[in-house]
């Protein structure tokens, strides 16, 4: 008789997301109460609902707690260096335009060390989806202040409270040219899923910010309670304002959080701009990447056979 399954074995076998996750890598490293898992789950749910070819989806991430997402998702995936997920994703997308490339990144990774890449990918309307798990802290390194940490919040490198002005990420993305911008909290799993679904369908640079708790570091250091308290805060103090002016959606310490789909507009993507421009300048001859080596070889072979046939 077979030995009964352990909880872990059953989890791996029966998890409804096992099609999208590398179950052999479970359990993951995230803390209890962390919001990253919610985002992963919503992402998987959105993929499940989509009609995308799952072999054409790639996940790219940088460094940090959220950086580990690429390693847990069962897609072509690249876990890169700190801040560099977007340029790697850019290279992947441009080299292989059939791919749907998704970057999942933390606030520090994306807008601190990687801020320059973020603004330029948005400016170019690069056809990638960027999901930012914003927990206001550098978790992996122990709770330091990030570009999104609200003023007055406490972090290990601002032990007397933060005196800097934080980024409002939807405003930043909007100003830089992103063509889809949304924000939710990790309480709003279904909304996250819907936004990711929209983003996956969207052509161009789509950006979704998810406000999440870091219970181990940010919440504890700021005496904000546990994961449940965070969700209670999101429940009580969040407000859906679709189409809100992104100049007015900044977040202060434990303030109201405006969320929703703020920006949704159409503009040619980077590659569309390249292809349209060169088709105009160069004409019918223009073809991005032309034929691959096997295609050229097959063509040559066919031609040789045709020649032999005619003799």
């Amino acid at each position: 008789m077979n030995a009964p399954m352990t909880d872990e074995e059953r989890f791996r076998k029966e998890n409804p997301m096992s099609e999208f996750l590398r179950m052999e890598r479970m359990p993951h490293i995230w803390c209890p109460g962390c919001g990253i898992g919610t985002v992963v789950n919503s992402f998987a749910e959105a993929l499940k609902k989509s009609d995308l070819d799952m072999d054409k989806v790639a996940v790219v991430s940088g460094i940090g707690c959220t950086g580990r997402v690429a390693g847990y998702m069962k897609f072509d995936s690249l876990h890169t260096t700190h801040g560099r997920a977007i340029p790697v994703a850019t290279g992947l997308k441009l080299a292989n335009p059939d791919m749907k490339v998704v970057v999942v990144s933390g606030d520090g990774d994306l807008t601190g060390i990687g801020g320059n890449h973020f603004i330029h990918a948005a400016r170019r309307n690069m056809d990638i989806t960027v999901i930012c798990v914003n927990n206001f802290t550098y978790g992996m390194t122990g709770g330091q202040v990030t570009p999104t940490t609200p003023t007055k919040a406490n972090a290990s490198t601002t032990p007397y409270g933060n005196y800097e002005y934080p980024f409002s990420l939807p405003f930043l993305a909007d100003a830089c040219g992103a063509t889809y911008v949304a924000r939710w909290t990790s309480l709003h799993a279904r909304n996250i899923t819907n936004s990711i679904s929209e983003a996956l369908k969207h052509k161009g640079f789509s950006f979704i910010e998810v406000i999440t708790p870091c219970t181990t570091l940010y919440a504890r250091r700021n005496r904000l309670g546990d994961g449940l308290d965070a969700l209670q805060y999101y429940h009580d103090d969040s407000e859906i304002v679709h189409g809100a002016d992104t100049r007015e959606v900044d977040i202060e310490f434990q303030s109201k959080i405006k969320m929703g789909t703020f920006v949704h507009r159409e503009k040619p993507t980077y590659l569309e701009a390249v292809n349209t421009h060169y088709a105009n300048v160069i004409g019918d001859e223009y073809q991005l990447y032309g034929k691959t080596t096997p295609e050229r070889e097959a063509e040559k072979k066919a031609q040789e056979q045709a020649n032999q046939g005619s003799k």
């Binding site: 690249l78 560099r84 340029p87 290279g91 997308k93 441009l94 080299a95 320059n116 890449h117 160069i282």
Partner: peptide
């Protein structure tokens, strides 16, 4: 590039340039 079927992109800096190569190479180029 446009004449031979290739793509040139001027990135925002050298860090992005080499990062894009890593993505590009795994993309098959």
């Amino acid at each position: 590039c446009p004449h031979v079927g290739g793509l040139f992109i001027q990135m925002e800096d050298e860090i992005a340039s080499i990062a894009a190569l890593i993505g590009g190479a795994w993309g098959g180029q």
